[in-house]
Design a protein around this nucleic acid. Sequence first.
RNA 1: GGGUAGGUGGUCGAGUGGUUAAUGGCACCAGACUGUAAAUCUGGCCGUGAGAGCGUACGUUGGUUCGAAUCCAACCCUACCCA
Length: 375
Amino acid sequence: MTAITYELLHIDKNSGARRGIVHTPHGDIETPVFMPVGTLATVKAMSPEELKEDVKAQIILSNTYHLYLRPGHELIKEAGGLHKFMNWDKPILTDCGGFQVFSLSALRKITEEGVEFTSHLDGSKHLFTPEKVIEIEEALGADIIMSFDECCEYPSEYEYTKKSMERTTRWAERCKKAHTTENQGLFGIIQGGFYEDLRKQSVEDLKKLDFPGYAIGGISVGEPKEEFLKILRYTTPLMPENKPRYLMGVGSPDYLIEAALSGIDMCDCVLPTRLARHGTALTSKGKLVIRNAEFERDWKNLDEECDCYTCKNYTRAYLRHLIKTNEILGMRLLSLHNLRFLTKLMERVRIEIENDNLLNFRKEFYEKYGYDKII
RNA sequence: GGGUAGGUGGUCGAGUGGUUAAUGGCACCAGACUGUAAAUCUGGCCGUGAGAGCGUACGUUGGUUCGAAUCCAACCCUACCCA
């Protein structure tokens, strides 16, 4: 009995999109799902109650690297694990620090053994090996844990990408060997940059390791949308059908719909919460930079189609005022709305898959949102 | 009435003879943001012009000088102290 299993409910006859359930020790996840990111054991500006009751989040992410540095995984283990520590009793997924290999590229050095980081906090040196990452993730106690990978930047040369991908596979094997807990599911991460043959090789090699779920890493790193879609549409169908498929780091509405269409079950992203803190709202009619002067006397709510607490109670003018004055409530209300916008979008996506109608929904959504073309 | 300090672009505040349309901060106006070093970052911010440029500008008026926000004089105003 593995900790994580996937139940396929329906496949959209017209697109191949999947409607399913991921079973975890902390409950079921209806998929496709959007997962809010809570790097430091908190989805910035949101309480767990708000995430459950208002956002209707089913699962959230946390980060191995950041929690290892502060407050330390041992402390969280002592607290009884991440769920208890942060008062979240639903599923959690911990990212492995692979993205930090990418985003902290100036502060790290990669070898076969692992990655040596210079802490961005105090300059201290830390070695992350696959074994160390698993030790940390087991201490944190998330339901789904990710194997240690390297997320390559875009663009990267073929030879480097190949070596990096093969090393990521070796690291995945070491992660699997190091993994001991039975109540956590370890996912493998597919790499290979923007080269189809490398993606194919990565999937095939990782499949042999028989992980309970697989993720696509290393895309949505600054490439054009065409490149993103090319790799997404090429790679997803190669992934096992009886296991969850997770696309890492994707969160704009169009990317989420494209991911679902290609057969992805899970996505996560910091975008909605970051945009919110920076004063931008996602709506059914496109992005609103609510900080801008045009909303000074706009007495409408953010999105007439939204059912969130923010939209039920507050005007654009008030939200603009809060953001302009740097009030905490402004970031909170926008974060709540943006997260709810995406979870509601995915609720709709799930219904459209059940009705074999996701392709039509995409067209309708794009037109209203203001995306100019379907690629 | 006397004394002292001071009046700079929306604001606070640098700048004490030329390279100054004038450092910075804030405010304001935009843009970016996709497994969070992010309540962050980037750009704009006198007028006009696509631009080189041109015009106007450091309380007011006058003066010194090749050249003044910067030096001199008078005046106006502000703050504090004394009467």
